[in-house]
Amino acid sequence: MGSKTADNEVTAVGGVLTDQHPLDFHSLGLAGCIDRLTAPLRERGTVVRWDTPHWGIEIPSNSASLLYQAAREALSNAYKYSAAHTLTLQLAAVDHGIRLVVSDDGTGFDSNLATCGRHHGYGLRLMAVAVHEAGGSVAVSSTPGQGTSVTVTLPLD
């Protein structure tokens, strides 16, 4: 039987990590909401490391929501494909903006295929469109056998 824990509220539905909880950026903060998404990776034995220099800036809810969706996409891909031992999340203030980096030491892939292949990177492409519309940028770097890094930068004005 075993006891149900709060971690079970995050499930992989069709390989996409989904938090059954309503998003609460106010009390959990963006990092807290994203951290909840890592539960299925942690359960599988992936070490999740956070690198969040303390900066205490307010992230507008629309930006927080977009960064959360980007993190969910990157973490879902890591969960489905990477077989990573370690995954690092970084959330940091940059010049007039905020940057989220999700990197892993997993299997990696040919990033050229991810942006043009018919069945690859569809979610990443949709996420990139949304980020670009918000004035931000997305960079995906991956090499077979050497892991993947997804960097999303959003302006804060």
Score class of each variant (00 low, 15 high):
residue 5 T to W: 01
residue 41 L to F: 06
residue 77 N to P: 01
residue 74 A to E: 06
residue 71 A to E: 06
residue 115 T to S: 14
residue 21 H to P: 01
residue 63 S to Q: 10
residue 100 L to E: 08
residue 17 L to Y: 03
residue 10 V to D: 15
residue 80 K to R: 09
residue 47 V to K: 14
residue 26 H to M: 08
residue 114 A to Y: 10
residue 72 R to W: 01
residue 50 W to R: 03
residue 108 G to P: 05
residue 16 V to Y: 00
residue 118 R to K: 12
residue 99 R to T: 08
residue 81 Y to G: 09
residue 53 P to L: 06
residue 42 R to M: 15
residue 125 R to M: 11
residue 54 H to D: 15
residue 155 P to L: 04
residue 147 G to P: 09
residue 23 L to N: 10
residue 54 H to Q: 12
residue 115 T to D: 04
residue 13 V to S: 15
residue 107 T to M: 02
residue 104 D to H: 00
residue 73 E to T: 15
residue 157 D to S: 15
residue 14 G to M: 03
residue 119 H to C: 00
residue 38 T to G: 11
residue 76 S to C: 08
residue 119 H to V: 07
residue 121 G to P: 06
residue 86 T to C: 13
residue 149 S to R: 03
residue 76 S to Y: 04
residue 83 A to G: 08
residue 154 L to I: 05
residue 69 Q to I: 08
residue 96 H to E: 07
residue 99 R to G: 08
residue 62 N to H: 13
residue 102 V to G: 05
residue 90 Q to M: 10
residue 119 H to A: 11
residue 73 E to Q: 10
residue 4 K to H: 13
residue 71 A to C: 10
residue 134 A to G: 15
residue 111 S to Q: 09
residue 46 T to Y: 11
residue 114 A to H: 09
residue 96 H to M: 04
residue 46 T to W: 02
residue 92 A to H: 03
residue 27 S to D: 13
residue 56 G to W: 00
residue 27 S to L: 01
residue 148 T to M: 13
residue 41 L to M: 11
residue 54 H to R: 14
residue 30 L to K: 04
residue 2 G to M: 09
